[in-house]
C-alpha cells in the first residue's frame, strides 16, 4: 500500500508513503520538515555524506507534483536546515518549473534565520506566514503540546492542527521480544503530526494515547497500525 485515506474533520485526507498528505478537496499538498541543505551543510563541515542523498529529496518532490497535480503546496516549517546553499537553488528551480502551484511556507524554528532573505523579491513565488488557516485546518510548524494554550486566538482553537517539527516515529512490540520502529503520521483528537520529509533526518518516539491514529511509513509503503486497548 502506498497511500491511505483518513477521515479527519469531516473531510478526506490522503496519507502518502512519501511522507506527505494530499487533501483532494482543494488539491493541496502538505509537506513537513524538508530540511533543505542538511546534507550539504554536513559536507561543508567536512563530513562526507553521499551528495546523491540530497538530490533524492527533490526527485521525490517532483514525483509528487506529477502524481497529485496540486494547486497549492504547503511546507509546514523547517524547509531549511541551516543556510541557503546549492540544494536551495535546485529546489527553487524545481518549484519555478511548476509555477502553476502556489507555494506557502509556514515558518519553522530552523527557518527564522532566513526570513529576511525569504522576504526579498527574488522569493516572491513563496508565500510566508507563521500559521495558516485553511478551514477546517490550521497549518503550523510545532505541535500543540509544546505551545501554551492561550497563544491560540478565537477561531484557531476550533481548527484541526496539521504540523511537523517532531519527526515522529513509532515503536511496536510483539511476542518473542519482537520490536519494530518506523517514521509515522500521528493523529490525535485535535491535531495531526506529519513525519519528516527530508532524507537523513532523525526522529523522536511518539507517546500514543487511547483514540490516537498512527500510520507508519517504511520502505516506500504505508502501514496503518492498530491500537490495542
Amino acid at each position: 500500500m502506498i497511500s491511505f485515506d483518513l477521515s479527519i474533520a469531516n473531510t478526506k485526507l490522503t496519507l502518502d508513503a512519501r511522507k506527505v498528505i494530499f487533501w483532494g478537496n482543494t488539491a493541496a499538498l502538505f509537506i513537513a520538515d524538508l530540511h533543505l541543505g542538511k546534507i550539504s551543510h554536513f559536507r561543508k563541515s567536512g563530513m562526507a555524506i553521499p551528495a546523491a542523498a540530497a538530490t533524492m529529496n527533490l526527485d521525490v518532490l517532483e514525483s509528487l507534483f506529477i502524481d497529485y497535480e496540486p494547486k497549492d503546496c504547503y511546507f509546514l516549517g523547517d524547509l531549511f536546515h541551516s543556510a541557503t546553499n546549492e540544494e536551495w537553488f535546485d529546489f527553487r528551480r524545481l518549484c519555478l518549473k511548476y509555477n502553476h502551484i502556489h507555494f506557502t511556507l509556514v515558518t519553522g524554528n530552523h527557518d527564522t534565520k532566513l526570513v529576511k532573505y525569504l522576504n526579498t523579491s527574488e522569493n516572491d513565488w513563496l508565500n510566508r506566514c507563521d500559521t495558516f488557516e485553511l478551514h477546517p485546518f490550521l497549518l503550523a510548524h510545532e505541535p500543540l503540546d509544546k505551545l501554551p494554550e492561550n497563544s491560540l486566538v478565537g477561531e484557531q482553537k476550533k481548527l484541526f492542527r496539521l504540523c511537523g517539527h517532531f519527526h515522529p516515529k513509532v515503536k511496536m512490540v510483539g511476542m518473542g521480544k519482537q520490536q519494530i520502529s518506523m517514521p509515522c503520521f500521528h493523529f490525535s483528537e485535535h491535531q495531526g503530526i506529519l513525519p519528516s520529509f527530508g532524507q537523513f533526518t532523525g526522529g523522536c518516539f511518539i507517546k500514543v494515547r487511547e483514540g490516537d491514529r498512527v500510520i507508519g511509513v517504511m520502505n516506500d509503503k504505508i502501514y496503518p497500525i492498530g491500537l490495542s486497548v
Binding site: 513509532v170 520502505n219 502501514y223 491500537l227 490495542s228 486497548v229
Partner: peptide, 14 residues
Amino acid sequence: KLEDRIKKMTLLLE
C-alpha cells in the same frame, strides 16, 4: 513481511 509482523504487534499506550 512487514505487514504480517505488524499485524501481530501492539502499540504501547501512554
